[in-house]
Write a protein that binds this DNA or RNA. Structure first.
Lengths: 199, 199
DNA sequence: GGGAATATTCCC
DNA sequence: GGGAATATTCCC
């Protein structure tokens, strides 16, 4: 199930992204560590923990969690901000009776899976926010030419971004090629040696 | 100069936006208040203050400002984050010798003007820096507008062509990858067989 | 100085 | 639960 070794060897983790994205987003790391560290804590009542199967976690006491736990890991003490982040990363509340949150790739003992969780994208639509929110004003103040120009600019920007991503993909492909070739030649040598030894 | 009353009465402040925008953004309010409150402080050395004319402010001691002042108003103690915000709101550093920042609408005793300061949009107003005319009046002549559009369309066309080429390169890369992998697995089988035959 | 990703807040 | 504005971080 775990391809980490292959990914590590071939350098394919998080394709097309910048270096800082090779590790999980701070939010996920902190939430995971918070759960590991809370297991060691000696509170009179449990504040937050993995559920019994370890495939989700439960905030047993939102009040204490907000006041005591959150500010130790984040720049706030608002339960709702924490939940907003959970939703951003695709967690779901799986119980109506308690604050239990689940994500397929967020499980006890599986820190390596965190890298597979990503923020939900807000669709990069053709129309940027500033055109959507004030389209009436724009219609008043912008000539259709200017409007056109804005669309062109937007498309242009997206194309350049796309170009960069494609270029990075190519670089990765080439690197993989090199590694495969190196591995191929090495493994042939090995086999040659084995055969020689056997003769 | 101050339209606050009118805006309030007609509910026209920050058109098309939600109520919370009728007051200045928190960053501006906090920075303004910070300056008012620092005036009362009794530090051995001045940390931050309005300049003598009151039309800009000076951070006299960035180190103390970061360690002592920032965390009292913001969720961090990084001078660079503070400066990033200043830039976002259009402040300029107006001295090369000291940390002095200025915005036309940010002046001592003029809290009511803060409402007129807004974040720079991340969207280029219309044109990128290298295409922008130097005049702030941006009284673009028809011909230069058309010219611009021509350039944009040209660039756009080229980018799309480039994209196609890159995509083809990637396809080739992937095909080669497949061949290498197939060859690798085949050659390993062959060698295994040779070894078996030799044993 | 600013683009862009992530975090926090506010609001529906 | 999520859209969108603002704040903070990271990077060029």
């Amino acid at each position: 199930m775990c391809d980490d070794a292959l990914e590590l060897n071939l350098g394919l983790g998080n394709k097309g992204q910048s270096p800082r994205h090779r590790c999980p987003p701070p939010f996920l790391l902190k939430t995971y560590e918070l759960l590991e560290e809370e297991e060691k804590e000696k509170h009179s009542t449990k504040i937050v923990s993995w559920n019994s199967q370890g495939n989700a976690f439960v905030v047993w006491s939102p009040a204490e969690f907000s006041d005591l736990t959150l500010p130790r890991y984040f720049k706030h003490n608002n339960f709702s901000s924490f939940i907003r982040q959970l939703n951003t990363y695709g967690f779901r509340k799986i119980s109506s009776k308690r604050w239990e949150f689940k994500h397929e790739k967020f499980q006890r003992g599986c820190r390596h899976m965190l890298i597979e969780i990503s923020r939900k994208k807000c669709e990069p639509s053709v129309f940027p926010a500033y055109l959507k929110s004030s389209s009436e004003e724009n219609a008043m103040t912008c000539s259709s030419e200017e409007n056109n120009q804005q669309l062109l600019m937007e498309e242009n920007k997206n194309l350049k971004k796309e170009r960069l991503e494609l270029q990075m993909q190519i670089a990765e492909c080439k690197a993989l090629e090199m590694k495969l070739l190196a591995y191929l030649s090495q493994s042939m040598d090995n086999h040659q040696n084995k055969i020689r030894r056997l003769c």
